[in-house]
Design a protein around this nucleic acid. Sequence first.
DNA 1: AGGGATCTATTACACGTGTAACTTCACTGT
DNA 2: ACAGTGAAGTTACACGTGTAATAGATCCCT
Lengths: 335, 335
Amino acid sequence: MDKKPTAAAAVTSADVARLAGVSRATVSFVLNNTQAHRVSDTTRSRVLAAAEQLGYVPHAAARSLRAGRSNLVLMPASVSAAGRLVSEWVDDLESELERHGYVLVLHAGRFPDPVSAARAWAELRPAAVVALEGDSLSGPAVDVLSRAGVRGVMAFASREVTGAHTVDFDQSRIGALAVEHLVAQGRRRIGVVMPRERGLATFARPRLAGAEGVAARSTATVTPVDLSYTHESAAELAGRWRELDLDGVFAYNDEYAALLLHALREEGVSVPEDVAVVGCDDLVLSALQQPPLTSVRLDLPTPAQFADALHELVDRGASPQVRGMEPVLVHRRSS
Amino acid sequence: MDKKPTAAAAVTSADVARLAGVSRATVSFVLNNTQAHRVSDTTRSRVLAAAEQLGYVPHAAARSLRAGRSNLVLMPASVSAAGRLVSEWVDDLESELERHGYVLVLHAGRFPDPVSAARAWAELRPAAVVALEGDSLSGPAVDVLSRAGVRGVMAFASREVTGAHTVDFDQSRIGALAVEHLVAQGRRRIGVVMPRERGLATFARPRLAGAEGVAARSTATVTPVDLSYTHESAAELAGRWRELDLDGVFAYNDEYAALLLHALREEGVSVPEDVAVVGCDDLVLSALQQPPLTSVRLDLPTPAQFADALHELVDRGASPQVRGMEPVLVHRRSS
DNA sequence: AGGGATCTATTACACGTGTAACTTCACTGT
DNA sequence: ACAGTGAAGTTACACGTGTAATAGATCCCT
C-alpha cells in the first residue's frame, strides 16, 4: 500500500536505526548477534521489529567490502557442457557449501584466454574458485586470482596447476580405460568420436590422447571421427562407416553413443558384431539402448568431502587431500 | 617469482596510483575511459603500465557500492532441474547479456519459502532477477527484492506475479496439449507421470492440472502415477501397469518417457497399441526411441530478444513485451 | 598586460557495513 | 566517600571505488 516509485529507495541499516531510535552500530550488533557486545532485550526487540517492518536485507557487497572477504564460491562452467552426472553433483555441492556459510554461484562465460577469464572472475572477489574445466586454468591466471585476494583455487584438472589445489580429473584416463577394454575384447581398429559442439573440446581432446596412448602400447590404431549432436551428422557418419573400417569406437559420451548407435542400426551395421561401442557417464538411459550400452562411470569425491576440503583451504589455508576422479568401466552388451 | 605469502595483499587502485606517481582519481579516469575528463597521453600510458604490472583488477563490490547499482543478473535455478533445452537457452542468454555489459550468474538454493529465498538473492543486490520457476515467486517476495533496489524482476510463470514482469510460461498448457492430442487419438483413460525427484514438482503439478482441465471438458479421465528416475521404479510401475488400465500416458518428460517406454516393453505392454506415450522437451534422443517418441517441444523467446527486453526493463524501467513460451506437439509413432 | 578559456591533475565525499575505542551511567564493596 | 566494575550505547574510522568540485598551469586574444 506504499507509493510505487520508479526508483524505490533501498533500505539501509541506517533506516532501521532511525526507526528504532538507536545508533547504526547497535543495529549491526543486534542483527549479527555479536557476542562481544551486550544489548538490552528491549532495544534488541525494537531493532528486530524495525528491521522486519522495513524489510531490511543487508548489502552483501558492502559487508564483504568491510570484512575484506566474501562468502561467494564461484564455479565457472557452462551449464550445457556439464553432463547430467556433474549437474547433480553441483546441486549437492551447493547444499553442502551452504552448511559452511558459502554461497555457490555458477558463471558461464566465453573468454579468449585463461587470463581474461580469471580477471572477470576476480572482479567478484570470491572466497574461492572451483574450476571444473581446470585445464584451461594457466599459472598466470591463478596469479591474477590470488593477487585479487581469492583465498582458494581448486581445479579439477589432469595436470598440476601451479598455485592452485588440483584435484585429479584426468580425462585421458577415461579414453585409456575405454580403449583398454575394447582391446581386451579383441578390437584393433578403434575410432574415437570427437564432438563438434563448442566447449566440449576441453574434455574431448584429452580423452582422445588417452586412447592414443593405450593404442601406442598395443597393436591397435586410433582414428578420431568428428560428430555433431544432430541426426543429420550421425546419419552422414554412419553412411561412410564401412569405408572407415573400424571394429570398435569410444563415443565420448553416452548421448553421442546413443545417437551413433541408432544411426548405425539404420545403416545396417550391427553392434557389437561389426563394431563395439563404449560411451561415458553411465546415464540411466544408457542401459535402455539397443543393445544396452557399455559405459565409463565417473566416481567423484562426495560433495560433502569436497565442501569440507574447500572450507579448510579457504579458512586455514591448508592443502587438504581430496580423492580424485576414478573412472570405472560398466560392461554391457554393446561391446 | 614473487614471495608466496599466506595472505596475498590485494591490489587496489591506490597501489596503481602510487606506482604511476599520480592520484587515485586519475587512475580511475584512465581505466574507465571517462569521457568527461581528459588526461595526457604520457600519464595515461604510465597508469596503464602500472595497472598491467601489478595485475590490477577492479573490485566489483566496491564499484557497484559506489555506483548504487550492479551489473549482476541473478538466475535462481537448480542446475539439474533445468532440462537440456533450457540449459542451452541459458548459455546463449549469458552471451547476449554480456553484450549489454551484464554478468549472468546462476544460483541454486533450497529455501523454505519464497520470501527467505528472495532475501538471500536480495543480499547480492543484482540488477535483475530472472526466475525460471517463477511460480514460487510470491508478491511479498518481489517486494523484498524491489525494497533492496533490484531494478528488474522477470519471472517465467503461469500466473501474473504482482510487481514482476511476467513472461508466460504456463506449464499447464503443456499437459493440456499432450492430453488433447491423446484424446484426439481416441484415448480416454489417461495417466500422467509425476516425478518424485526434488524440485520437479513445481513443473509437474501444473502440467497435471492442465491435463485434468482438458479431461474435464471431455469424456476422458486422468490418473496421476508416481515415478522415480530409476530402473527399479520404472519396473515396479510397469509391473502393475495392466491393473491401472490406461490407454494413454503423458510422461512429464522425454527422459521419464524413455524410461517408461523401456520398462513397458520388458513387461510386454506394446506402444502405441496398448498405450500411447507422449513426452516433453523434444530431445535429440527422443526420436531414437523404440518406437520414436511423440513429444511436446517448447518454443521460447530467443535469448537475444529476452536480453534486450531485460536491459530495457533495467535501464528505462519500461515494461517490454516478450513473447511467452509456446508448446508445440511433435507427433511420432509412440502415439 | 590582463582576463578568460582550455587542459590536466587533485582533493574530498559518498556508497553501506562491521567493529575497536570511547562515553555514560548505575551499582558494588570496602 | 570513592575507586572499581560492568552493562548499554555511541562515535569514528576503514574497506575500494567513481565523480563533482576545485586548483594550477598554459595559451590565446584584444
